[in-house]
Amino acid sequence: MDVWVVAMMLGVSILLGALGLVGLLWGLKNGQFDDREKFLNGTSFDSEEALNDAISMEKKKDKILEEKRKTGYRPPD
C-alpha cells in the first residue's frame, strides 16, 4: 500500500473526528448543554416566531442602550 494512502486515510479520518469534537466543544462553551431539559425540548418550540422574538429582544436592548448613551446616562457606581 502506498504510504500516501495510509497518511491520507489517517489524516482525513482524524480531521473529521476532530471537526466533530470542535463542534461539541463550541456548543459546550456557548452554554448549549447547560440546561439538559430545555435542550431536549427545544425542538418542539423552535419556530420562526421564536427567532423573531429573539431578534426583537436584541433590538429592544440596543435601543435602550442607545438611548442611555444619548442621554449621557452613567451607571451610579
Binding site: D34, D35, E37, K38, N41, S44, F45, D53, S56, M57, E58, K60, K61, I64
Partner: peptide, 24 residues
C-alpha cells in the same frame, strides 16, 4: 417546558426587559 416557554414569552414581551433565560 411549556411553562418555561410561557414565562420567557410573557417576560420578553414586556417593555424594558431585554434578556430572559430560564433554566428548566
Amino acid at each position: 417546558s411549556a411553562c418555561v416557554w410561557l414565562n420567557e414569552k410573557v417576560l420578553s414581551k414586556k417593555e424594558g426587559i431585554v434578556e430572559v433565560v430560564i433554566n428548566h
